[in-house]
Amino acid sequence: MTRPFVKMNGAGNDFVVVNALETPFAPTEEQVRTLADRSTGEGFDQLIAIEPSTTADAFMRVWNADGSLVQTCGNALRCVGWLLMQANSSDRVKIDTLGGPTVATRAGDRRVTVDMGEPRLDWTDVPLAEEMDTRGIELQVGPIDDPVLHTPGAVSMGNPHVVFFTDRQDDGFITGSGSLVEHHPLFPEGVNVGFANILERDHIRLRVWERGAGLTQACGTGACAALVASARRGLVNRKARVTVDGGELLIDWDEASGHVFMTGPVEIERTGTLAL
C-alpha cells in the first residue's frame, strides 16, 4: 500500500503528514518506526494523519518516531493548521486532537498562531504518580547531596512536560538526563523533558528531550510548558521568545483568558509517497 505525504517542519521539528480525510490511515507501531528511520526510511520526529472530525475542521493524529501514539504536538498543529487554511482559503481553523481541540490562525506569511488552551497545572493533570506542587516537584538527577538538576516545574499542555532550569544544554547532558527522566516512575505516561536557560525576562533558550522521539530541533508544547513553568516561578514575563535549536517561537500566556498562544514558522520540505 502506498500513500502520498507532505514533509513539513515547524522551527526544525519535522513531520510526515498524510491526508486521511477520505481514506483511513492506520500504520502499526513497527511501520511507524520503520518510516521514521532517518537512514532507511523517510525520517521524521512525528508522523501525522489528518482525519475527519464532526466537531472541528479536522482531527490530527500523532505518532512519535518510536511508534507510540501521543496526545498532541504544537509544531505539527501549526503545520496542519496552515495546510487546512490553504485548502479552505480561510484564516482560521479548528483542529481536534487526543489532547483536546485547538484553533489555528494565520499570523503572516507561513506563520501560524495556535491557541494551545489553558495549561493543566494540577499534579493529577500532568499526570504525576503522587501529589506534589507542580511549581517545583521533588525530582533530582545526580548525587543526593549535590544534584546536577533538581526541582523542575511540571505542566501538561495536553501532553506531560517537566522543565528543569539550567544553563547546561550540551547534547550529551540533554541526552543522558532526558532519557533518564523520560521513564521515571513519577510519570506514569512518560514525560517530555525540557532544559530551560533563562536569558532575559522575555527570552528563554530551550532544548527538549521528547518522549518517544529524543532530542528534537523544536518542541511546541515544550516551549509553551517552559514559558508557563518559568512564569510560575517568577523568572520571566508571561510573554517571551523561546529560542529552540531550529528557530524561534513566540509564547504568550494570556492573562485574561488563561490560554497559551504559540506563534511560529511553517515550512514545506517536499512531497513523496509512503510505502507501507
Rank of each mutant, 00 (worst) to 15 (best):
L206A: 11
G81K: 02
N19Q: 03
G67N: 15
F187M: 08
R61H: 12
L249W: 11
P185L: 05
P127I: 06
R106E: 04
F173P: 00
F195K: 00
E267Q: 02
W63A: 02
V244P: 01
E42S: 08
A56I: 01
T105A: 04
G234I: 12
A56N: 00
R78H: 07
V228E: 03
G41Y: 04
A231K: 05
D66G: 08
V193C: 02
V17I: 15
R92I: 00
T134R: 09
S68T: 15
I174R: 00
G176E: 15
N237C: 09
P101G: 00
G41W: 03
G158H: 06
Q71M: 06
D96C: 05
D202V: 06
L186S: 03
P119N: 09
V80Q: 08
L274F: 13
N9D: 03
I95F: 08
A129T: 13
K94R: 13
V242Q: 12
N75V: 06
T113D: 00
P101M: 00
S257C: 10
A36R: 13
K94N: 01
D109R: 10
F25T: 11
I95K: 04
V32W: 01
L274D: 11
C73F: 10
E30K: 14
G272Q: 07
L186Y: 04
A104M: 09
A229V: 04
G67C: 11
P24M: 10
D122G: 15
A26R: 14
M1R: 10
R135Y: 02
S257D: 09
A225G: 08
V112N: 06
A213L: 05
R106I: 01
V260D: 14
V163Q: 10
I174Y: 00
V126M: 07
T271S: 11
E51G: 07
S177E: 12
